[in-house]
Simulated assay, not measured.
Amino acid sequence: MLDTVLTGRDAPARLIALPGVYRPQSDTRLLADALSREEPGPATEVLEIGTGTGALALCAAGAGARVTAVDVSWPAVIATRLNALRHRLPLSVLHGDFATRTRGRRFDLVLANPPYVPSPRARPPSYGAARAWDAGPDGRAIIDRICASAPELLRPGGVLLMVHSGMCGAASTVDHLRRGGLTVAVVSRAVVPWGPVLRSRRAWLLSRDLADGDEQEELVVIRARRP
């Protein structure tokens, strides 16, 4: 399923992405690799936070897992539903805030590729394409919410896999999750060139000591397990 959804020269044609919906990129692929190592199956109940086009949710569903995908963006919800129909895979796709829409539920596996790009804006935007990546001045506005919610979202033995930029502070994420009683490790790293959003903020990022000017970004996947 990973090869079908995320790779190949015609991969963009395999996934419908409405305007403003985040398309699969290097972070998506890094998280998909980590997902494949978890070997989800029919007994696995999966939540994807911020599903975008639904690429990762489809990967999990293709392995037989029961998948719930959540996004605050209506275009992302519609795109994911269309992609699920196109690939003939069952997904439950919900619109809204992940914490509100999943209250009282627990999962075996939680996937998150949240907005994590540091932004001069004090708060993440509430509309527009930038809500898929802008996450406050330190890039942690959504990351910290996921860390705080993870212990209640996971069943005993359940796993959170979250990808984000190294400039957001992987050590801070690890510490936050450990304070919630989870067993935590960075399980994947990759270095990728800056995209257009980071390049447009070069001077601001340098002024905040969030970058060193080489225009390379480290991505990390953090795995947290509830004992």
Rank of each mutant, 00 (worst) to 15 (best):
L6M: 03
L6C: 01
L6K: 00
L6H: 00
L6R: 00
L6E: 00
T7N: 12
T7R: 15
G8A: 10
R9V: 13
R9C: 04
R9S: 12
R9I: 11
D10N: 15
D10W: 11
D10I: 05
D10A: 14
A11G: 08
A11W: 06
A11Y: 06
A11T: 10
P12S: 04
P12V: 01
P12E: 02
P12F: 00
A13G: 02
A13D: 09
A13H: 07
R14C: 10
R14F: 07
R14D: 08
R14Q: 15
R14V: 07
L15I: 03
L15T: 03
L15S: 05
I16K: 15
I16H: 14
A17F: 00
A17S: 09
A17D: 00
A17H: 01
A17M: 02
L18D: 12
L18I: 08
P19Y: 02
P19A: 04
G20Y: 03
G20Q: 06
G20A: 03
G20I: 02
V21T: 13
V21W: 12
V21Y: 09
V21L: 12
Y22E: 03
Y22K: 02
Y22M: 07
Y22H: 11
R23G: 06
R23C: 14
P24H: 07
P24I: 01
P24S: 06
Q25P: 00
Q25S: 15
Q25D: 12
Q25E: 13
S26L: 11
D27R: 14
D27I: 13
D27H: 08
D27Y: 10
D27Q: 12
T28F: 03
T28G: 07
R29W: 09
R29N: 05
R29L: 11
L30Y: 01
L30T: 02
L30K: 02
L31R: 06
L31H: 05
L31Q: 08
L31N: 06
A32L: 06
A32D: 03
D33E: 14
D33C: 07
D33A: 12
D33I: 05
D33Y: 01
A34Q: 06
A34D: 09
A34K: 02
L35G: 00
S36L: 15
S36N: 10
S36F: 06
S36R: 12
R37M: 14
R37P: 04
R37E: 15
R37Q: 13
R37L: 13
E38P: 04
E38K: 09
E38W: 01
E39V: 10
E39C: 10
E39N: 14
E39Q: 15
E39R: 14
